[in-house]
Simulated scan of single mutants.
Amino acid sequence: MSTTTTPAAPVAATAPGRRLGPTRLALRQARLEIRQFMRSRESVVFTLGFPIIMVLIFASIFDEEIAPGVSYTQYFITGMIATGLLTVSFQNLGIWIPIERDRGVLKRYLGTPMPKWVWFAGKVLMVLVIGAAMTALLLAVSVILFDLNLPTDATSWLTFGWVCALGITACTLCGIAISSLARTARSGSAVVTPIALVLQFISGVFFVFTNLPSWMQQVAAIFPLKWMCQGLRAVFLPESFGADEPGGSFELTRVALVLAAWCVIGLVLCLTTFRWTTRRDG
Score class of each variant (00 low, 15 high):
residue 118 V to C: 09
residue 193 T to I: 09
residue 119 W to C: 12
residue 171 C to N: 09
residue 104 G to A: 10
residue 167 G to P: 01
residue 166 L to V: 02
residue 166 L to W: 05
residue 178 I to Q: 00
residue 137 L to C: 13
residue 156 S to E: 08
residue 160 F to W: 10
residue 131 G to Y: 03
residue 134 M to V: 07
residue 99 I to G: 03
residue 172 T to H: 01
residue 114 M to E: 14
residue 159 T to E: 11
residue 132 A to T: 15
residue 136 A to Y: 04
residue 194 P to W: 06
residue 187 S to M: 11
residue 115 P to T: 07
residue 132 A to D: 09
residue 109 Y to G: 14
residue 166 L to P: 00
residue 127 V to T: 02
residue 112 T to M: 05
residue 160 F to N: 03
residue 175 G to S: 01
residue 149 N to S: 15
residue 194 P to K: 08
residue 152 T to Q: 15
residue 155 T to P: 05
residue 123 K to G: 12
residue 153 D to G: 10
residue 113 P to Y: 12
residue 117 W to D: 06
residue 111 G to E: 06
residue 156 S to A: 15
residue 180 S to N: 05
residue 125 L to W: 07
residue 168 I to A: 00
residue 176 I to E: 02
residue 118 V to G: 05
residue 177 A to M: 03
residue 115 P to D: 04
residue 161 G to C: 13
residue 120 F to R: 03
residue 139 L to G: 06
residue 102 D to V: 05
residue 179 S to P: 02
residue 150 L to Y: 08
residue 118 V to L: 11
residue 122 G to L: 08
residue 108 R to A: 13
residue 148 L to N: 05
residue 154 A to V: 14
residue 150 L to T: 09
residue 182 A to N: 01
residue 107 K to N: 09
residue 196 A to C: 07
residue 138 L to C: 11
residue 132 A to M: 11
residue 180 S to F: 03
residue 183 R to P: 08
residue 182 A to P: 01
residue 186 R to P: 03
residue 152 T to H: 15
residue 143 V to R: 12
residue 162 W to L: 09
residue 140 A to V: 13
residue 137 L to A: 12
residue 138 L to S: 07
residue 144 I to P: 14
residue 145 L to M: 15
residue 175 G to N: 00
residue 177 A to H: 01
residue 155 T to Q: 14
